[in-house]
């Protein structure tokens, strides 16, 4: 009740008015503001967000001022780029093939710089390798696997042998004859055409290190072609990429590649004319047209503090 009303009330009592004044109308209830409170969810937030949140009402934090990337992003980027650079720069040792029980082969490329600049030379065998192939390798096979360095010798050394073994085992399980294991240095994909032609294989499969991406220097790709011959194009090939521990692991890839090779021999074709529609169960996501689940990003650098 306001002060003036109190004064009037007191005076009225003094002047003999007994009955109290009617109370003023009640103050209406103030409705709650239409606010919905969402529970705090900390598990998805970074340490930066957790520590910044008590100090600001901001909903979006980019972690820095200005147009720079945050330190963490720069460091991760530099680390991932370094992984890619390292993979490109690594050379496959000359004796790696023999140590792992494979026929050592080499393209016409003579050094690493030439390998990067002259893809055409990487697609043909040099004279010495051709002679060795003709002399040693088993001919008239169903499948001729070739391990190669490609653009990432790191990947070749890391999982090339495991993929070759898995692939060979799966092919033999399907009744396919598999050629002598061999390993090519300074190899491009199309080198499989000449090799497959020389050994008269039905299907040539080259398993080589793929062009490194950020943070992925150890990925293998496999390119398969039916009736290999010099002059085949990429439209004649089927390929599978991202064969590494975080992508398709070599045992799974070996199984799928064997399925693919069998399908090529059954359908007597490869590349865009190969029908993979009946193989979706066995090939899994490799045959489906749906986008794949994103890969887990591996943090290469931890920023202290």
């Amino acid at each position: 009740m306001s002060r003036t009303r109190q004064l009037v009330e007191e005076l009225r009592r003094q002047l003999g008015g007994a009955a109290p004044l009617p109370p003023p109308p009640p103050i209406p209830a103030i409705p709650e503001p239409p606010v919905r409170v969402f529970p705090r969810r900390d598990e998805g937030r970074s340490r930066y967000a957790r520590e910044a949140a008590p100090h600001t009402t901001a909903l979006v934090g980019i972690g820095h001022v200005g147009t720079r990337y945050s330190t963490d992003v720069v460091l991760q980027f530099q680390a991932e780029l370094a992984v890619a650079h390292h993979a490109v720069a690594t050379l496959l040792p000359e004796d790696w093939a023999e140590k792992n029980g494979m026929i050592p082969l080499k393209s016409r490329v003579t050094d690493h710089r030439e390998f990067l600049l002259r893809p055409d030379l990487g697609r043909r065998l040099d004279e010495e390798s051709l002679a060795r192939l003709r002399q040693v390798a088993r001919k008239d096979v169903d499948v001729q696997p070739i391990v190669a360095d490609g653009l990432s010798a790191v990947a070749c050394m890391q999982s090339g042998k495991a993929l070759l073994e898995a692939f060979t085992k799966e092919c033999e399980a399907r009744g396919l004859s598999v050629g002598t294991p061999m390993c090519a240095r300074f190899a491009r994909v199309w080198l499989e055409d000449e090799i497959g032609q020389e050994v008269r294989a039905k299907v040539a499969a080259i398993l080589l290190g793929e062009r490194p991406g950020l943070g992925t220097g150890d990925g293998l790709s496999a390119y398969l072609v039916f009736q290999p011959a010099v002059g085949r194009t990429d439209g004649d090939r089927n390929m599978m990429s991202n064969i590494h521990a975080r992508g398709t692991p070599p045992p799974v890839a070996g199984h799928r590649l064997a399925v693919l090779a069998k399908a090529m021999i059954d359908q007597r074709t490869s590349g865009v004319t190969l029908d993979l529609g009946k193989l979706t169960a066995e090939l899994g996501e490799a045959a489906s047209r749906h986008p794949r689940a994103p890969q887990e990003r591996v943090r290469l650098v931890e920023v202290p503090g």
Binding site: S2, R3, T4, R5, L7, V8, P24, P25, I27
Partner: peptide, 27 residues
């Protein structure tokens, strides 16, 4: 509106409320 509904108003100075008086104190 709150002030008009709950605070400031005239009062009837006689029984018949014919005489209106406004004795308001603004603090």
């Amino acid at each position: 509106v709150a002030c008009l509904e709950h605070d400031a108003c005239f009062y009837g100075a006689d029984e018949a409320k014919k005489t209106a008086v406004f004795p308001h104190v603004i603090a």
